[in-house]
Amino acid sequence: MGFVVFLLVLVGLNVWMTQRVLSAGPTLDHKGLLVAGIWVVPLMGALIARNQLRARTPLVDSEMPPPPPAAPAPATVDAAEVPALALGTCLRNANGWPVLEWPLVEGWLAGINDVQQRQHARLACHRAWLMHLRDAMGPYATLHETEDAFVLSTLEPGVLKATAAFIARSRRRIDQVLGALASPPAGAKSILVVFDDEADYYPYTAAYDADDGEAAFSGGMFVDAGCPHFVTRRDDLSRIEPVIVHELTHAALAHLQLPLWLDEGIAVNTEHRLTGAQRTEHTPQQMHRLHQDFWGDTEIQQFWAGTSFRRPDDGNKLSYDLARIIVEQLAKTWDPFAAFVASARRSDAGAQAAHEALGIDLGALVCALLHRDATPAWSPRPDTLPPPVTAA
């Protein structure tokens, strides 16, 4: 009799734990393995599953009441000198998310002559749009605003405040690292939107992705479309931090309109310097061999144009790594490098600026880094480059 009771309790425990695993949501990985462990290894499997459930950061605690009602998203934005901007005339639905037609907003802002009033009005437009986006994200979403940043997400209040503080601290550190090269827009606040999962993140970023092909996956994306902001997926703060630094660096450099390889190379190196985060899927020796095998005459021209950064294959990660290596080498002598960055242009992938400020040929430099004979076919060729791609 005692064995039967024990068996019933064990089965009940397994059924209950299986239900908890299957309903845990997208933040719990390897659900199938956990369920198998529950039934294959009695008690121990349930204990492992329980520990995994406790360790995960829930998207939303179903037993937690939503935050107090926030101020409703405005229908208009008021400003001196011009009639109010009716948001309904310039707010569109993009894959289920509200997006402002920023050219229309800029046309309205152009009617405000006073520079300070125009900055205040632009900030009000950013705030109003984020409030509409907040409402689309659901009742648990919160828009947290500080002197330096907007943070929109379902993160817990303490994490929201810590994230905003990290953004402010990172802005100051990036200014110190980049010196005169950094120039965030006057009066602007950094904007971070943290989506719960891929199901929300990718439809939103697709609204800003100009590529017709398959976009390469990423941990974050800097959107420089009228209202510069960066987006990422919800995760623990230590994993979001490198994305924040990376995308804040893009924001600080956006005024220079850099070639993509240079923009990404500076962002990756700044990310590593300020957060210590480095992706080490392969050893340096393995990466070197992958570079040697991948890059050819056609691929290197894609790199200079920026299109290789959007490849869905290894060309994506190799493009970021090659950009990192080039910038790491060039930035060892800062003053000439800063002069190069200040004059580099997307139209020729920075080739002329490299000749004038550094006295080098970019194609020859890459050949030397990959231990291959120099060839003119590897130098940027503006006459054959496709339209340059901007940072993402």
Rank of each mutant, 00 (worst) to 15 (best):
R234V: 00
A252E: 09
G219T: 08
G220C: 04
P68Q: 05
L33D: 06
E81P: 02
R233F: 01
T384P: 00
Q116S: 14
R289D: 09
P26W: 00
L152Y: 05
M131E: 12
V327Q: 03
G296C: 08
A323K: 07
G25Q: 04
A141T: 01
G219Q: 11
A149V: 07
A267F: 07
M137W: 13
I244W: 09
P382M: 02
Y202T: 14
Q301W: 08
D383R: 11
A354M: 07
D314F: 08
L262P: 06
W16G: 02
H255Y: 02
T205M: 08
A368M: 03
L155T: 00
A124Q: 14
A136T: 14
F294S: 05
A75T: 14
G220I: 02
L28S: 12
R56T: 02
A79P: 00
S23V: 04
G45D: 05
D61E: 13
T275L: 03
S347I: 02
F230K: 03
A70M: 10
R279W: 06
Y202N: 07
F166K: 12
L178C: 07
L8T: 10
R345E: 13
I326G: 01
E63L: 14
A225C: 11
G363A: 04
T333D: 15
W39C: 10
E281Q: 13
T205V: 15
L192A: 15
F166I: 01
I300W: 11
Q352I: 11
S153G: 04
T89P: 01
T154D: 11
H371Y: 02
A349W: 05
E156S: 07
G32Y: 05
P58Y: 00
P312S: 05
E264I: 02
T280G: 00
R172D: 11
E328G: 11
V341F: 06
A207L: 04
F166Y: 15
C367S: 15
N51F: 12
H255L: 01
A188I: 03
L152N: 02
E271A: 09
D235H: 08
G359D: 06
L237E: 12
A188G: 09
A124S: 15
W102R: 10
A55Q: 14
V193L: 09
A374N: 07
Y204E: 00
T146H: 07
V99Y: 02
P42K: 08
L258N: 00
I300Q: 09
G187D: 07
D135W: 01
F3I: 14
I174S: 06
I240W: 03
N316F: 13
Q116I: 13
T154G: 09
W16A: 12
T163W: 09
H120S: 10
E356Y: 08
V341N: 01
H355F: 02
S308F: 08
F3L: 13
L22F: 00
S153I: 01
C367T: 10
D148I: 00
R171L: 13
L290K: 13
N269W: 01
A165V: 07
K161R: 12
P336V: 12
H272K: 13
A36S: 14
T57S: 12
E147M: 03
H229V: 09
D135Q: 11
M17I: 10
A207P: 11
V41C: 08
